[in-house]
Amino acid sequence: MREKKPFKDKLDRRSFMRIMGTSLGIGALYSVVPALGGASAGDFFASGVADFLKVRNGEAPSPFTFVQLSDPHVGFNGPPDPLGTQAFENAVAMVNRLPRRPDLVIFTGDLTHDAPTRDTHAERMKLFRSIAGRLRVPMLKWVPGENDAALDNGVLYREFFGETSYSFDHRGVHFVAIDNVSRGRPEVGADRIAWLKRDLARFPKTAPIVVFTHRPLFDLKPEWEWFTSDGDDVMNALAPYENVTVLYGHIHRKHVHQTGHAVHYAARSLIFAFPDPATAGDKKPLPFDKTQPFKNLGIRRVEAAGEGQPELNVADVELSVREFSGTSGIQQMIKGGSSEDNE
């Protein structure tokens, strides 16, 4: 039995990255805004973190948005979703129609559906890149899901998408991609966790950090394989940092969970949805409904409002038929109206 080290929950009033969920139609849309809870944004900037980030990144935290897309499973075409890549393509079109162009789009795994042969899998990866390439955004980032990288330890994935764990800075926010699939098991591995600690060591404890990964880094539903065996070790490495947001996929449904300072957000998929683990006995995809072909699929946008604006605003957007009606969902967002369905 592998030892599970308990993660020490440390609740603190201060939270740099606060995500406010807003559900609309196909994915997840984010705003990045410093949020300090009980402290003021002025305190944050007075604390020197902004100056530090300015030195590190050449700029202080400033307003921007990014989008999370997850689990398009390119190549899948079965009863739970006979429309194949249609939801993914609609999501790309939706992102391109956003009134405010996102700085980046992050994909949280299962870009492709696993394939019986390497050649077929490579074709699916090419198709994914072709569709993702239509996104009119400056930057695309991704992490693998088990369908992309678990059978060959990520060899083919790396040929198409590069390294599976990495980090980068953007407008004062530190982003970390963590691979928890390519060893076959749901685990990150001691070497990657050591790398994570080294990567984070240069930042002050109040630095805004966005982690993106495929599987949940906590025990959401182990019997459905919704966990990472050494997720507690990852979260212990992140525990000293006060403003951590974890974005992940894998579970094909929205979910929000807090451990210590970190808030974990699961995104909808772009292929089919799984049921609520609290009420469903089995992990079976929700059946396809031809009258609502994109129900439960979606994107997520995150908005960072930047200096002096203490909020990270997350809007989940469902790809529903009504979304195309012009009266709700992304249409509202395009019109500048408020979105709905906060969770």
Partner: peptide, 14 residues
């Protein structure tokens, strides 16, 4: 109790 395969082994793994 349910036991599962948690080492990905292919398309029927689940």
């Amino acid at each position: 109790f349910k036991a599962i395969c948690d080492h990905y082994c292919g398309l029927g793994h689940g």
